[in-house]
Amino acid sequence: MLGRTASSLFWMSRYHERAMNIAKLLEVAYRNAIVAHGGQNSLDDWRFALLSSGCENMYMAKVEEVSPKGVISYMVFDKDNPCSVRVCLEAARNNARSVRTSITSELWEAINTTWIEFSDTNPQSITRDRLPEFLSWISQRSHLFRGALLNTLLRDDGYYFSQLGNFVERVDNTARVLNTQYWVLLPDNDVIGDGSMERYQWTGILRALSGHRSYRFAYPNAKLSAQNIAEFLILRREMPRSLAHCYEWISGSANDLGLYYGESLPSLKMADKISSELSDTDMSDIYHNGLHDFLSDFIVQNNNFASQLSQDYNFA
């Protein structure tokens, strides 16, 4: 397979995953901003979306003032924002297009129709009231993309590169969302006053990572607590967006790729190492060494893995 083909499959998945993650952040901002909560300025909810997606500085440089309208337009439609939904969906579609013959028609139709319908949408028509419906459409299209990929793609090297792109992006997003608000996840940050403030921040994080309902299943008898939430999103393998779960898939795909090509390259060793470190640790270790440092290190390690992968397999 051409290195460029591997690169396109990897980035097709990465960008599609990123588009959905941005939609999720906005969903949380929207929901939290309309729910009244004492003393909290609802603009902070929109700022949370900007911060977690890492585009706050660029936004402030361009738009200057945080407003719901400004954030929606910047994060969904802005062509100059490298992580707007539009730019991600277009990049995902262009990557898919350049490997059109290596993917199935189901996968291509999913990704191409999403892009066509998205670009037919007039940004003016997505007012604050219509935002939830539109964001949920983006999520659904993203699920369709993943479904088409999992249900139809041949299990060869192309599949492994697509999976790697998906999980590298997903795990980066989880780590960033946690790191943006790591202080609300510290164990000594247990409930102050009536606890409504914490509950609102915690559910925001859980919802941004599609884990609000499943948290209740994973911890059936426990209340929301900083330590449980952090454990759920970092170490619990059954949580499909946790760091541990994502790295289980990354190391699995890296190993499959090694078997497929019959050689073990440095990126494989890195994935195994990160994955086993996540199995061998627990929350008290992480808290002991500092949650913020742990997450920041993890983001760097994940980036290093992605660049080693592209070096190993000649992503042009």
Binding site: M1, L2, G3, R4, T5, A6, D157, F161, Y261, E263, Y313, N314, A316
Partner: peptide, 16 residues
Amino acid sequence: RDLFVDEGKVFMRTTR
């Protein structure tokens, strides 16, 4: 950009 020349021969950049 998928091709390169080395010692007078043309090669394709593949994942291997």
